[in-house]
Design a protein around this nucleic acid. Structure first.
Length: 433
RNA sequence: GCGACCGUGGUGAAGUGGUUAACACAUCUGGCUGUGAACCAGACAUUCGUGGGUUCGAUUCCCAUCGAUCGCCCCA
C-alpha cells in the first residue's frame, strides 16, 4: 500500500528547491541589511503560548491549531505562527535587559494551521518574518513596512498593493468597539451568521465580512478614524507620511483588521494581483503590538513585526516567471563514448568536481544522441566527450551546448580553459535573457 | 466548518455496462562503432484512487471513503 503525504503538506523537490533557496537567501539578505539577526525556535510550544498571544477569539486558535498531549500529559501545539515564539524567547532570555533596544529578530521556518488547502494555502507552510521589540515609534513601524516592501522588490515583484490601517490604541479601540456593537446590534438580525457570532467575539472583524448584503450595512458603520485618540492619529499620520517620503505606495484600507488579536495601532498587508486578476490572499502582513511582551511575562514593551508566506511568494514567482535567470546550472556533463574504462571517465569527473564546478557524468555508455538529451535536461553548459581517442592523447572534447562549438582541450590545460569558458558562457547566457 | 469539481500508464489525456483500455509525449531496443534533428520497426496499464453495492458481467451505474484542485471563511 502506497503511503501518501499528509493532507495539506507538500514535497519540494530538486529544481523547485532551488527556487525556494533563492527566495530564502534573498529574504535573509534583506533582513540582515536592516540589522535583523535570525532566531531559531522550536516548532512545538505550549498551547498556552498561542492562546495567550494570538488570542482565544481568533480563528487560528479556536479551530486551526494542531494541538496534542505529549507523554508527560502536556498540551502542546505546532506553532501556527512564529511571532509568539520570538517574544517568548526574548522574555525567557531577558534579552530586553542586555540588548540594545529595539531587539531585532528575523526567522524563517515552518508553521502549521489545520485549514482546507487551496491555492497558496497549505497546512504546513513556511514563514519568513521579522520582529522589532522595545521601541515604540513610528520610525520602527515604517522600517518594518519598508523592509517588507523592499523584500518583495528584491524578488522582482512589480505590482504590489500595500494596504495599511490603524486599529488605534487601547482607548481608541474600546470606544470604537463599543460604537460598533451599538451600531450593528440594530442591524444584526439581517446579517450573516458569521457576523452574528463576530458581534459577540470581536465586532472589529465584521468590517472584514465579504457578504454583499452585509457590506451595505457595513458602509454605514462608524469609522475608526472618528474614534482615534489624538496620540494614535498623530502616530498613524507620521507613519504614513514617512512612507510617502520613502516613495512607498500604499492604500489606506479601513476594513483591514487582521485575525490575530495582539495587534494595535498600525497594521498592514502586502497583496499581489496577477495580470489575469487572480489573487492568493495576502503575500504577507503584520503590525504593531502593545501588550504581547507583557502578556507573555515580560516588561511593558511594544513591538512591530511582519511575516511572509514563502509558498505564496514561490507560487507567484513561478507563475509570473520572475527570477528565471537566477538558477545555477550544471557546468559540465561528461559523456563516455565507445568501449572504454568507465573508471577513467570517473577520474576525469572527479577532477572537475575538485575544481568546484557542478558536474555529472553518465555512468553508462549510451548512444551520444541519448547523452546529449540528458545533458539538455540537466541544462548543462558544456558537454565533455571522452572516448578512446581522447584517452590516448590525454585530452577531452569540449562542446558548448548552446553554440554547439566544439574544441579539443588537453587535460593538463582543463583547469585554465574551464575557468575562462564557464565565465564567458554565464555572461553570454545572461545577455540572451 | 460549508460548497463546487475531479481521480484511467512516467506525463498529457480519450473511452465504453460485455471479449486486445484509444491517441500523443517521454523512456527503452534495433535500423545507425562517436555528436543533440527527422524517419522506420518494436517494447511499455494482468488494469481504470480505495472499499462495498446493483448486475450474468462494472473502468463505465449507485453508495461510502480517501485524495487532488478551486471557491467561501480565515490567513501566509
Amino acid at each position: 500500500m502506497e503511503v501518501k503525504p499528509v493532507k495539506g503538506t507538500h514535497d519540494i523537490l530538486g529544481s523547485e528547491t532551488l527556487l525556494y533557496q533563492r527566495i530564502e537567501d534573498s529574504l535573509a539578505k534583506i533582513a540582515h541589511t536592516y540589522g535583523y539577526l535570525e532566531y531559531r525556535t522550536p516548532i512545538i510550544e505550549h498551547t498556552e503560548l498561542f492562546s495567550r498571544s494570538v488570542g482565544g477569539s481568533s480563528d487560528i486558535v479556536r479551530k486551526e491549531m494542531y494541538t496534542f498531549f505529549d507523554k508527560g500529559n502536556r498540551s502542546l501545539s505546532l506553532r501556527p505562527e512564529v511571532t509568539a515564539s520570538i517574544i517568548r524567547t526574548i522574555v525567557n532570555n531577558k534579552l530586553y535587559a542586555s540588548a540594545d533596544l529595539p531587539i531585532k529578530a528575523s526567522y524563517i521556518g515552518p508553521a502549521f494551521r489545520y485549514e482546507r488547502p487551496q491555492a497558496g494555502r497549505y497546512r504546513q507552510f513556511s514563514q519568513f518574518g521579522v520582529e522589532a521589540v522595545g521601541l515604540d515609534s513610528h520610525l520602527i513601524d515604517a522600517e518594518v513596512i519598508s523592509l517588507g516592501y523592499h523584500a518583495l522588490k528584491s524578488l522582482e515583484f512589480k505590482d504590489i498593493t500595500l494596504k495599511i490601517n490603524t486599529l488605534g490604541d487601547d482607548e481608541s479601540r474600546n470606544n470604537y468597539r463599543g460604537a460598533l456593537r451599538e451600531y450593528f446590534t440594530n442591524h444584526i438580525h439581517s446579517m450573516c451568521s458569521d457576523c452574528q457570532e463576530r458581534l459577540q467575539t470581536n465586532p472589529l472583524r465584521i468590517l472584514d465580512c465579504k457578504v454583499e448584503e452585509d457590506r451595505q450595512i457595513i458602509k454605514g458603520a462608524p469609522r475608526i478614524q472618528d474614534f482615534l485618540s489624538k496620540a494614535s492619529k498623530e502616530r498613524f499620520d507620521k507613519t504614513v507620511n514617512l512612507l510617502d517620503a520613502l516613495n512607498i505606495k500604499f492604500d489606506i484600507d479601513e476594513s483591514l483588521v487582521r485575525g490575530l488579536d495582539y495587534y494595535s495601532e498600525v497594521v498592514f498587508e502586502y497583496h499581489y494581483i496577477a495580470p489575469d486578476g487572480k489573487t492568493i490572499g495576502a503575500l504577507g502582513g503584520g503590525g504593531h503590538y502593545s501588550h504581547l511582551v507583557e502578556e507573555l511575562g515580560g516588561p511593558n514593551l511594544s513591538g512591530v513585526g511582519l511575516s511572509f508566506g514563502i509558498e505564496r511568494l514561490a507560487q507567484v514567482i513561478a507563475s509570473e516567471r520572475l527570477l528565471s535567470e537566477a538558477f545555477p546550472l550544471l557546468a559540465f556533463y561528461v559523456m563516455p563514448v565507445g568501449e572504454i574504462d568507465l573508471e577513467k571517465i570517473y577520474h576525469i569527473t572527479e577532477k572537475i568536481h575538485r575544481l568546484g564546478y557542478p558536474c555529472e557524468m553518465s555512468y553508462e555508455v549510451r548512444p551520444l544522441k541519448t547523452l546529449f538529451k540528458r545533458a539538455e535536461r540537466r541544462a548543462a553548459l558544456f558537454a565533455v566527450i571522452v572516448g578512446s581517442e581522447e584517452l590516448e592523447k590525454n585530452v577531452i572534447t569540449l562542446k558548448n551546448m548552446r553554440t554547439k562549438e566544439q574544441s579539443v582541450v588537453a587535460l593538463d590545460d582543463f583547469e585554465r580553459v574551464a575557468e575562462q569558458v564557464v565565465e564567458e558562457e554565464i555572461i553570454a547566457i545572461g545577455e540572451t535573457r
